[in-house]
């Protein structure tokens, strides 16, 4: 096995994991505190990509795209929360799944009307478009390294926020015992809106960051949101730490699986069969992993056990 390829795939996995974390953090917070299953979280990621790409194409400044697009989308998220989602907090999960599925349909169609049907393509900003030499003769994309760095910084920031601030205390309290927070006499509505806005902002940020890599397309939200759900389920709902670890594991499984599964399978079965089976199995890998985790730990790695 070549070390260079292994390390590069490891970096790819970490980069994907970090992206998943940015999405999963918001999901797990809204779930842990408001008890809300929000399928439309991926739509905020998509809107982030569209606004980011549009502003970047207009102004030519990627920084400006980040600075403007994230608050715009967070604003849209807060409007959605106030008008629609707020009424769903006390409702059955089923109602939440359906209503937020309705939101997905709405936002997907909306971007198809507002933006060109074929979506947008934007380049990587000039100063980040080079590759960086690493040991073992690896040349790795500076832009992807920047995403890894940003993601890890944000993960640390989230950890500090949750463990060191008053908001974080309320978040932890809400995740472990929802009724407690109601009893504390805090302004619950404001807390919920704040947490929702924070989650949306992280998701939108992920969208802006990914736009130069993936482009902006209608429907890009669902593809990733399902994986993000897998992540928070593996990590245990409500746990930021759990979703960070699960995001990295999922990212690594995905990228290493895509890369080495055929080689690993070939140890057990004929090479032809291995090459035929590998792509199919690698698409199933994270689901198999999740089913396995839930079989042994029905509330995920760091989820609270039911009473």
């Amino acid at each position: 096995m070549e070390w260079a390829l292994l390390i590069e795939q490891f970096l790819n996995g970490v980069q994907f994991g970090v992206l998943l974390f940015l999405l999963a953090a918001g999901l797990t917070l809204t779930f842990g505190i408001m008890d809300l299953v929000n399928l439309a979280h991926g739509s905020m990621y998509m809107l982030g990509a569209f606004f980011g790409a549009t502003i970047f194409l207009w102004t030519g400044s990627f920084i400006l795209a980040l600075v403007l697009a994230v608050p715009i989308v967070a604003g849209i998220g807060i409007i959605t929360e106030v008008t629609t989602l707020r009424t769903l907090y006390q409702r059955h999960h089923l109602d939440q799944v359906l209503a937020t599925f309705g939101l997905i349909l709405f936002f997907n169609e909306l971007v198809q009307i507002v933006w060109p049907l074929e979506g947008l393509t934007v380049p990587v900003p000039e100063y980040l478009s080079s590759t960086v030499p690493l040991p073992f003769g690896i040349e790795y994309s500076l832009y992807r390294l920047m995403i890894i760095g940003t993601g890890i910084l944000l993960a640390i920031g989230m950890w500090l926020l949750v463990t060191r601030t008053r908001l974080g205390m309320l978040i932890r309290a809400g995740a472990s015992d929802r009724e407690m927070v109601y009893a504390l006499g805090t302004n619950i509505r404001l807390l919920f809106t704040l947490v929702f806005g924070l989650g949306t902002a992280l998701s939108a940020l992920a969208g802006v960051l990914m736009a130069p890599i993936l482009g902006a397309n209608s429907g890009m939200g669902e593809q990733i949101i399902i994986v993000a759900f897998v992540v928070i389920v593996i990590g245990g709902i409500g746990s930021i730490r759990g979703s960070f670890i699960a995001a990295l594991i999922t990212g690594l499984i995905d990228s290493l699986g895509r890369s080495f599964l055929d080689v690993i399978l070939a140890l057990f079965i004929p090479i032809n069969a291995a090459e035929a089976a590998a792509p199919a199995i690698s698409s199933m890998l994270i689901y198999i992993f999740m089913a396995g985790i839930l079989f042994f730990k029905p509330t995920g790695l760091f989820g609270k056990q039911p009473n």
């Binding site: 599925f101 309705g102 709405f106």
Partner: peptide, 19 residues
């Protein structure tokens, strides 16, 4: 052709108004 833009909110309304 953009019927989902009406169908989505319809879905939400059904859920909200007639559980």
């Amino acid at each position: 052709e953009h019927w989902h833009i009406i169908f989505g909110p319809f879905l939400i309304l059904v859920v909200l108004l007639s559980p």
